[in-house]
Structures are given as C-alpha cells and as structure tokens.
Design a binder for these strands. Structure first.
Length: 348
DNA sequence: CCTCCACTGGAAACCTAGGCTC
DNA sequence: GAGCCTAGGTTTCCAGTGGAGG
C-alpha cells in the first residue's frame, strides 16, 4: 500500500479469544502510523457483522468511517456501495475494511455485498478497497460463494487456540501491569489459565477472569488474590455473559424466554407458544405467529440460552424439546428491568 | 406395514419505514 | 406530493417428517 498498489485481501480465522481482532487492529494502527510518516493517506474501517446485523448496516459502518452520510434505511445496497466507490475514486482513497464475524453474513443474509466488495476495485479508477475478513467459524469457507472465496482468501492466517502455558504467560504479563506486586499468587494465575484453557484457549476470557478475580478480592479487602477468588470469578463471568445476552434480546424473544421459564422443565413448541400468547395478551401487545416463534426459538438456541432438539413422539407428532439453560431467577431479574414487562413478572 | 400427529422449515407474499425522482 | 424503489421483519402457505399406535 505504501507503493500505492492494492494489497491482497486477507482472511483471518480461528476460535474466539485467539486474538484475531486485536491483532488486526494493532497491526493496522502501526501501519497507519507508518503511512502517516510517509505522507500517505490511508483509511481503516471496521465493522462487526453480527453487531451491525445486516448487509446494509455493514456498508453503513464503512460509509460512516469515510464521512459519507447514509440514511439508516431507504437506499438500495448497490447505491450505498456506489457512493462509497465514488468517494474512493474522487479522493483516491486507500482503504482497508475489516469485517469482523464475517461468517454472520453468509449465515443470516446473502453474501452479495461480499461479492460486490471483492469486485469493487474494478470499478474505481483511483484508490482501492482491500478487505480483511475475520471469522470464528472454521467451516464458514464452505458456505461462501467460490468466487468470493478465491478473492477474499488471497492470503489466509489461521489463529490456533492458545495453550494453557501460553495463557499463563499472557496472564503473568498482564498481572505485572495491573496488580500491586505480590498481590496475586502464581497459583491463582495458573488456575485462571487452566480454567480458560479448557474452554478452547480463549485469552479474552482468561483476562476477564483475572480482572474479575482481582475485583472480588479488592471488594472484600483481601491482601492477595487467591484461588477461591478465581473460582468465584468464573461463576460471575459466566453469569455476566448470560445476563448481558438476555438484556440485549428484542422484546418478543424476551417474552418467549420468559414463557419457557414459567413452564416446568421440558416444553414443546406448542406449549411455549400458548404461554407466550397469554403473556402478550396480558400486556396488550399483538403476539407473533407460531412460525415466527419457532424461528425465535432457533435464535435463542444459537445464543445458547436454551437448548432445543427435535423429538418424534410418534402418533403425538413431532416437536422441539426445549429446555432453558438459564435459571429462572436470572431471567426474572432481567425481565423486570424492562419497563414493558416488569408488571408481567409481578402478576405472574 | 400403514396412518397420522404436531410440528419443522423453506419459499413467497406482505408490511413498514424510509429515500429518490419528477 | 405522488409514485416508485429497497431492506428487513413478519405472516402465510404448505410440503415434509419419524415413529407410536393401530
């Protein structure tokens, strides 16, 4: 890029917490610094496909980082892309666009924009757009349009999971920065590493664990972070992840989840649905159809909040067996925070 | 071996909110 | 301002399904 030529697209993949995003951002930060010293104008844009939620919003993210104003709805995708490409041509911009969790696009919508983006350089006279795709899903390549794949994976880097030993080193380094000397035992660090290591070597989780353990120790005024704090921390970290996930659910998914928690043990789609309809009537909102709820149940399953598997009960038909993976108290507390739903839990 | 339940999940139609053009 | 277009969410429609009970 420093020689004004388009660089290869790049595909990074590996499990969560192996440092893909952090590495990409760090390297690009260094790169931009170098580019600046050479008086090159470069742009780095970032979008997380899962958080953005749709193709349109991924493109909006890109447009915004180029200071192009895009309405949040109303434009055809191709128009959004055209505006971006025009801007690139006009200002001869050199752009690296990171699409994080790119696998989300292929699973939840079509990968049309990936195709358009990879071909974009043919439509610009000056400037160019290079892509960095980041995927957690190792198999996502199989679902990708072969034309997109060959273009996107001009270069590939696989991030293997960290070993427990590597995690231990990362944590020791981190602890040196964050903790007062001797305030954390090496046994605690080892335990953090071991606990995070059993869950496919997720460094983000390991660092979280260390931080939470530290906070717990601090709160109770302990002089040292010991292994008990770590054990408490792992529970808290797990729980926080779940509560956050529930808090962000759209209204109808919250109601669906509440319905499941109000029924006992194992439920069928039909039972959950009639409970759900009841709750909706209770608070005076229009219930969605069963077909839609069936879809929402799949989404909750994907989020790991419930587990479903399809069972055949012979003459009694075929249904999903639905179990909640979250305790009712947690669901209740969080649903209570929702102003539309809090009198629902009261009446129940 | 056949039936038939209670769904599942794909496909297409429909709806809404918004932008663009004339 | 009318008439058109789009994306994204939802509804409508329906063929398909595996095995308990006949």
């Amino acid at each position: 890029m420093l020689h004004n030529s388009k660089c290869s697209n790049l595909l990074l993949y590996g499990k969560t917490g192996t440092g893909k995003t952090a590495t990409a951002k760090y390297v690009l930060q260094k790169f931009q610094f170098t580019a600046k010293t050479h008086n090159k104008k470069t742009n780095v844009a970032y979008s997380n496909a899962r958080l953005a939620g749709s193709e349109y919003r991924v493109l909006t993210d890109l447009a915004q980082s180029l200071n192009i104003k895009i309405p949040f709805t109303g434009l055809p995708l191709s128009e959004v892309l055209n505006r971006i490409l025009n801007k690139i041509s006009e200002d001869s911009l050199m752009i690296i666009f990171i699409i994080d969790e790119i696998d989300y696009l292929t699973k939840h919508s079509s990968d049309d924009i990936l195709y358009l983006l990879t071909r974009s350089s043919e439509q610009t006279n000056n400037g160019f757009l290079s892509l960095i795709g980041i995927s957690n899903d190792l198999q996502f390549k199989e679902f990708l349009d072969p034309r997109v794949l060959s273009s996107l994976s001009e270069e590939e880097i696989v991030f293997p999971p960290y070993t427990v030993e590597q995690l231990r080193e990362i944590l020791s380094e981190r602890a040196k920065e964050a903790f007062i000397e001797n305030s954390i035992t090496s046994a605690s660090i080892n335990l953090c590493a071991a606990l995070a290591g059993t869950e496919h070597g997720d460094a983000r989780r390991a660092v979280d664990l260390l931080r939470v353990a530290g906070e717990l120790a601090e709160r109770e005024g302990a002089k040292q972070v010991d292994e008990n704090h770590v054990r408490l921390a792992i529970k808290k970290v797990d729980q926080d992840r779940v509560t956050e996930a529930i808090r962000l659910l759209p209204l109808h998914e919250k109601i669906t989840l509440l319905s499941i928690s109000l029924l006992n043990e194992i439920n069928s789609t039909g039972e959950v649905y009639s409970k759900y309809v009841n709750l909706c009537k209770n608070i005076g909102i229009e219930p969605l159809t069963q077909r839609r709820i069936s879809g929402l149940l799949n989404e909750l399953d994907l989020l790991g909040l419930i587990s479903t598997n399809i069972i055949n009960k012979g003459r009694h038909g075929r249904t999903k067996k639905i179990t909640s993976l979250v305790t009712n108290t947690i669901i209740n507390t969080i649903i209570n925070e929702d102003s539309m739903l809090n009198n629902l839990t009261k009446t129940v």
